[in-house]
Amino acid sequence: MKKIICVLGMAVVLGLSQAPAATARDYISIVGSSTVYPFSTTVAEHFGKTTPFKTPKVESTGSGGGFKLFCAGVGVQHPDITNASRAIKPSEKQTCAQNGVREIVQVKIGYDGIVLAQSKKVPAMHLSRRDIFLALAKEVPDPSGAEKTVPNPYKTWKDVNPQLPDVKIEVLGPPPTSGTRDAFLELAMQGGAKSFKWLKELKKKDKKLFKKIAHTLREDGAYIDAGENDNLIVQKLEANPNALGIFGFSYLDQNADKIQGAFVDGVEPTFENISAQKYPLSRPLFFYVKKAHVGTIPGIQEYIAEFTSEKAWGPEGYLADKGLIPLPDEERSKMREVARKLEVMPME
């Protein structure tokens, strides 16, 4: 028993002697979007292996959480880079500016496609954004054509659109905290809603009401909140061929032997189509750099250089292997210049 106490005592001493040495930071701290996380970590790892710098630390906090941490201030305790699956909002810029983060470099790194995937056991669905909106919105335009909304009456895809198969509407998707869900609402649901003329006009008149109609998903079991784990959705789709799942393109890319993407507005979600901006449900991905940290924290510029090198983000680069859809050539070289020169984005 005495021995145990001795060991514990030593542990205490060891623990305390190590504690106060926490001022400097010699590695890059990255936070932000879970969509960009797989790409950011891959670059970080390559960077750590091929340069004398330490491997950056990457936290997956979501885009919003990332900006919150990023904009909290300048200094070693705050992150240097934040990843985002959407552009920074004006309100976030304001917070940043208030906390002294005035010089931010915005780097667009490529695209992510939102796919509606289904099992390979059934033929691929051909959906339009209008179909998606009608199938999943809580309130839909009155089928009789009147300019008002009614609670969603549709049970099967055939009810939505006679050309679609007669199967129950069942869509597994991410929870409200997810950036993927935000993007889905914005790209698919709003896009579908805007296909109704009176709703499009409503958007101009009463943006709030329009958003409420387009952004409220059904709660009667047709849309199933499947949690953040996308691998789980893949497994569920395999088990249930009638269901559709919403997630990022990289999951489709990695599991192409089990699931397939539904066509949206006649375009299949493929690498090429998303890259060429043909596929309607795609969104740009970004990372943001705190310029004030460049020079203080070692390796930031080198990390950016690695990320924006052809072997990383090019069409043949290793990020493409991970499912990143590269920017078109011209935009890529423009962005590389921005990154190289650390061109600060306007704050207003």
Binding site: G15, Q18, A44, E59
Partner: peptide, 14 residues
Amino acid sequence: VAFIVDIPRGFTDA
């Protein structure tokens, strides 16, 4: 909850 490649070498490493 972060991507950390390097093996931590102390109580203040990531």
